[in-house]
Design a protein around this nucleic acid. Structure first.
Lengths: 202, 202
DNA sequence: GGGTTTCGATACGGCACCGGTTCGTATCGT
DNA sequence: ACGATACGAACCGGTGCCGTATCGAAACCC
């Protein structure tokens, strides 16, 4: 575990123990500031400290720098991966597609777009991002493969393209609100059904 | 025309005329800096002037501030809207889908992601963005309607959802490289064919 | 040539902010 | 009570930017 505040075997601390309250406040302040639109690079230890009602030293005591702090903070957003039921491929896809770009913490909705430039700029961050979403992608890949095996989906299906078709519309909607007058809640169903059935007239 | 350097009826200027070269250099410098990864907010008049080999006064003489300059600069990226041939709905869609997130200026590819946070933050910028892409959306909408009318596409087609299905995958790919191992050049065809035919086994 | 405007360059005052450290105090184990 | 550590606040040195002003040179019209 790379969390700074590791809860491993408590080493007898001689002096005053670290304030758990401060820990939480710092992380929360970081996420709040990001959610309010601050760019990653514009985010400063100073601002975080001020927002958290904490001295800067308290932050430097825990993290070596902004990057490490951000890493821990963003880890917070990563919700549990939804588990498909495994009955109907269609229903499983609806579930997974609905989870695309959806995070438990409502702040994530505002934060994720702000990370786009960073992810595009830095290969490291790009890789990190890929690592985070890979489990979810894998899940969808398996559902698709199951569909192919069961005959529900075309035998010659290109899995990667299919995933792009399914996740793209949702992601664009959640990230960019590209189509302002589409209903978020109904979209997963519509996307899955639309992609499954195709647009062509029978 | 909201361009600052309007070429309207030339009012006899008594003194030395504005240097067109400087005009160009300033815009180019702005785009270059953005393409190199500078955030919009991190972009400074000072940096632009330095990069353009221009005095700051020369910039302030033309634009009231950073925002106005940026507006003019970004206008440069907006390429000509591709015109569908009108023969096959499928081919027209391939053309339009291929144009999604594609700009003439190669720098746009680096710049657009950086604008995502800005567009999400400011309603004004969001509206501006919508205004820019609306013509292209309208084009696709018409092609889809044509397909419905001609019987090539289902009669009960939800146009807005269909557009999301078509543009979403491309945009995600171009903007986020969400699926790192998909080929950009072949994707438009694959997306259109995939969405048209659907994933379901016949 | 005279008048006018722009050119690039540089300088300016002022401001805001930032990173990291220091300081006196508060809170812990023993 | 004592030593050790963490706490928040305040401090320091430095950076960068903005928007304006000024400068000598240059480019234009008449």
């Amino acid at each position: 575990m790379s969390d700074v505040n590791s809860t491993a075997d408590a080493p007898r601390s001689p002096g005053r123990p670290r304030s758990v309250r401060a820990d939480e406040a710092i992380i929360e302040a970081t996420l709040d500031l990001l959610a309010e639109g601050s760019t990653i690079e514009a985010l400063s230890i100073e601002a975080i400290a001020a927002r958290a009602g904490v001295g800067k030293a308290t932050i430097y005591r825990r993290w070596p720098g902004k990057d490490a702090l951000l890493l821990d903070a963003l880890r917070r957003l990563k919700g549990v991966v939804a588990q498909p039921a495994g009955h109907s491929v269609r229903d499983d896809l609806v579930l997974l597609v609905g989870a695309v770009g959806h995070n438990i913490d409502p702040r994530a909705e505002r934060i994720m777009p702000c990370l786009v430039p960073e992810v595009n700029r830095s290969p490291d961050h790009f890789q990190l991002y890929q690592n985070i979403i890979e489990p979810r992608r894998k899940l969808m890949r398996e559902v698709l493969r199951r569909g192919v095996a069961s005959g529900e989906l075309r035998a010659d299906l290109d899995i990667e393209v299919a995933m792009a078709l399914l996740t793209g519309p949702m992601l664009v909607q959640r990230l960019l609100r590209w189509h302002p007058d589409l209903d978020d809640r109904l979209l997963p169903e519509k996307v899955v059904d639309g992609v499954l059935d195709g647009l062509r007239a029978d």
